[in-house]
């Protein structure tokens, strides 16, 4: 029971602290960077609406991959939608929305399938293999681990249990979930602990590479 308490009752706080804190400190480091010289690429959307539109199109359709690297597009899109759905499942479940099991299950399946396909196409071609370090596979493996463990243990199908757990954590009196759910929770913690130090923080980096560099701030 001791280990279970560490994983279920102590580690979540640490993981959140490191994950969120680390991410914020990294973002602050970027935000406080000295203003670099103009380095934009034309054309770019210069209105807030235009920029938001491009951003959403990129997030939800992975347009760059579709246009220029089709091979990666569908697997990547599948994995990303899986991740979006799992996050949605967590948010809705924590808020007490019922019947979110479908989102959780679908999210898990898509994330695992997408990540697996990405491993395969990455490894299958000389060109991508050559530019790949083991850490790339590790990142994908972590996504698969969360998805698979969440599916196998039925975690994604139990929004009520998740809500109870979150409320317990939020009130600083953790209610430990069933022991078989140790795995997904542990992997999620690892993910959070690792996030700020890894490339998986690219969703935050994109704000800077697009808004601050590629799009610049000069109207033309």
């Amino acid at each position: 029971m001791g280990l279970w308490f560490v994983i279920g009752g102590i580690l979540p706080y640490l993981a959140l602290l490191v994950g969120v804190g680390g991410l914020i400190s990294r973002i602050l480091r970027w935000a406080r960077a000295p203003q670099h010289l103009h380095w934009e690429l034309f054309p770019y959307p210069s209105t807030p609406a235009g920029q938001t539109g491009e951003l959403l199109a990129e997030v939800f359709t992975l347009r760059s991959l579709y246009s220029y690297n089709l091979r990666f597009w569908l697997p990547s899109l599948t994995m990303h939608y899986g991740i979006y759905l799992v996050i949605l499942w967590m948010g809705l479940s924590a808020l007490g929305v019922r019947d979110t099991a479908v989102a959780g299950a679908a999210g898990g399946v898509l994330a695992v399938a997408g990540a697996a396909a990405l491993v395969v196409i990455r490894a299958a071609r000389r060109e991508t293999r050559q530019i790949t370090a083991p850490v790339e596979y590790l990142n994908l493996a972590l996504v698969m681990a969360i998805g698979l463990s969440g599916l196998i243990t039925g975690w994604f199908l139990q929004p009520e249990a998740f809500r109870r757990y979150v409320i317990g954590l939020a009130s600083f009196s953790p209610v430990l979930p069933a022991a078989e759910q140790l795995a997904p929770i542990l992997f999620l913690e690892v993910f959070l602990l690792y996030l700020p130090f890894s490339r998986m923080a690219h969703f935050a980096a994109k704000y800077f590479t697009y808004h601050k560099v590629k799009w610049g701030e000069m109207a033309r």
Partner: peptide, 28 residues
């Protein structure tokens, strides 16, 4: 060090740290 590469530090470290190794760049 940001203070010693003021001209391009931000795009430089972002490019060093955040490449996803997807190979899209090579396609063009």
């Amino acid at each position: 060090r940001s203070g010693e590469n003021r001209a391009f530090w931000l795009p430089y470290v972002l490019s060093l740290d955040m490449c996803m190794k997807c190979g899209t760049c090579a396609e063009v």
